[in-house]
Design a protein around this nucleic acid. Structure first.
Length: 515
DNA sequence: GCCGTTTTCGGCCCGACTGTTTTCAGTCG
């Protein structure tokens, strides 16, 4: 059985190969868009195809791609991709990971020398062969040689929580510089994505070049990649890339919107603007070459006939339509949380200090008057799951699904458990491929709560959270804390459920009484 | 390859930076 992400991967691989081949860039984008649609879908494409669902109803999927997806699902293979792989050596695809080398230059190199590996590329760069190609100067050759050594770590991403501290530190550092008015971190960091690839920082300052000079002297900068009049890029000692951009005060809103993304959201906004005879860029919104908005994000959205959309929702997953139908969610906030239903018993005092009204503890038995205590027990849902094995006393049972098991077993476990939690390891890119559509429908029916662990590496995908909420499943955001510090993890859970469109009413521990 | 309240053809987001030339293409975000 092929998973959604496997289908998506095949399509984006095809896009890479078509790119090197020099195909129409818009066709390539179509493949990438379709891959994105599939990756972002909570629906199992295997199931959709089997049920005869019309895939062309989905955004970015037309007749051709629908046929291709059906082929992938039914045969497990994509003949078009297989053919391209035979035609284009893998070495050329590897070259895409070299800074400064894109499809055009790779094709140019291949056509001239038939090089098919990074090793050969290095040789040709070193012995002066590459210089012979038009527009390959000494600087570019050096860049390529450097790039071969340190390939762009494909999609190297940091957990949001792991960059939080450094992001705030750089912000503070920049604000100390005289003449710096505003420092704002945009990009996926601002959208609170579970992982971020780099940090995009905007500054409003009197004299940008001076700020840039100061910026590249930040203590953890390992390498200065570029430093221009409006933009500078550096790498830190942990390989995190930081982009700093100068922004004028009048354009602040437009720039913030632009650099917050996501790209897919921006493209939609621009399309809307075009339809209305306007143009949106990072400097503002223009009508007949006249600037009509740009000072604030609110202004930008208003200019194109929309309401303000929270950064966490800007993924082109229906937020624009929701705004137009007046159905945008009123997102939950950290301050809405009234308790934490999965912590160590030793942390109850701290929980009281945080102002929590109740907690769920995994161990020990405590009686207290100042806070309501629920006793919970965690149990793994696997083939051998058997409720009668549990002979301790408890208020609620938390079922944990750690592996891909038959949907039937999970449905059966629902007779016994009150909460369900699903395994995920973001760094290791491991997540369960289960029939969540069916599981969530049943959970909603039986009033089983979806436990959202706030551990940064175990956050369940926001796509699944959104789908669960739509089906009527309630959430419990838990820190699963073992230490004092981990009690505050709950903010990461909040970030994630906000990305999953959660309102306070969807979250049981945002209530004074959770049950 | 997708898409359409002017369109089934002709568009498809847009600008900065770099390195190469000398007006621009390629790459990147």
């Amino acid at each position: 059985m092929v998973t959604n992400s496997e289908i998506a991967k095949m399509l984006s691989q095809t896009a890479d190969l078509l790119e090197i081949k020099g195909e129409n860039p818009f066709k390539i984008r179509a493949y990438r868009n379709a891959a994105r649609t599939i990756e972002n879908s909570s629906k199992d494409f295997n199931k959709l195809v089997k049920e005869g669902f019309d895939l062309t109803k989905l955004p970015g999927i037309g007749n051709d791609l629908s046929t291709y997806i059906k082929e992938i699902v039914t045969t497990g293979k994509f003949s078009k991709l297989e053919k391209l792989k035979k035609e284009i050596p893998q070495g050329l695809v590897d070259m895409l990971a070299i800074e400064g080398l894109g499809p055009k230059r790779i094709k140019q190199i291949y056509d001239a020398f038939h090089i098919t590996s990074l090793e050969d590329l290095k040789k040709y760069a070193e012995n002066g062969e590459l210089d012979k190609l038009p527009s390959f100067g000494p600087t570019l050759i050096q860049k390529i040689l450097k790039g071969v050594k340190q390939l762009k770590k494909a999609g190297i991403r940091f957990l949001w929580a792991d960059v939080e501290e450094i992001a705030e530190d750089i912000k503070e550092y920049l604000l100390k510089f005289p003449g710096v008015e505003i420092v704002k971190i945009a990009g996926s960091y601002r959208r609170r994505k579970e992982t971020v690839g780099d940090l995009d920082i905007l500054v409003v300052a009197e004299d940008y070049p001076k700020v840039s000079e100061y910026f590249i002297k930040y203590k953890r900068v390992k390498e200065v990649h570029s430093a221009g009049l409006t933009r500078s890029t550096v790498f830190l000692d942990n390989d995190l890339q930081i982009d700093l951009r100068a922004v004028s005060k009048e354009s602040y809103g437009a720039a913030l919107h632009y650099f917050t993304g996501s790209k897919a959201h921006n493209i939609e906004i621009r399309k809307m603007a075009i339809e209305m005879g306007m143009k949106v860029n990072e400097y503002g919104v223009y009508k007949e070459n006249k600037r009509i908005a740009g000072k604030s994000e609110d202004e930008v959205y208003k200019a194109v006939g929309l309401c303000y959309i929270e950064p966490e929702l800007r993924e082109n997953r229906g937020e624009i339509e929701a705004c137009l139908n007046n159905s945008l969610p009123d997102l939950i906030n950290l301050g809405d949380i009234k308790g934490d239903l999965n912590i160590n018993a030793s942390l109850v005092d701290k929980a009281v200090k945080k102002g929590y009204k109740y907690v769920g503890i995994r161990d020990g038995e405590i009686k207290r008057d100042d806070i309501k205590i629920y006793k919970i027990i965690e149990t793994e849902i696997n083939k051998n799951f058997n409720i009668s094995d549990i002979n301790k006393k408890y208020d609620f049972l938390v079922g944990i699904v750690n592996e891909e098991i038959e949907t039937e077993i999970i449905l059966k476990a629902m007779e016994k458990v009150k909460f369900l939690r699903f395994f995920r390891d973001i760094k290791a890119k491991k997540e369960l491929n289960l029939d969540f559509e069916t599981i969530f429908s049943q959970m909603a029916k039986k009033n089983i709560i979806l436990e959202i662990p706030s551990t940064p590496n175990a956050l369940i995908s926001e796509v699944l959270i959104k789908s669960a909420i739509q089906k009527g499943v309630k959430l419990s955001i838990v820190s699963a804390a073992k230490t004092d510090k981990e009690l505050d993890f709950i903010k990461y859970g909040i970030n994630q459920v906000r990305r999953g469109w959660a309102e306070a009413k969807d979250v049981i521990n945002a209530r004074n009484n959770p049950f």
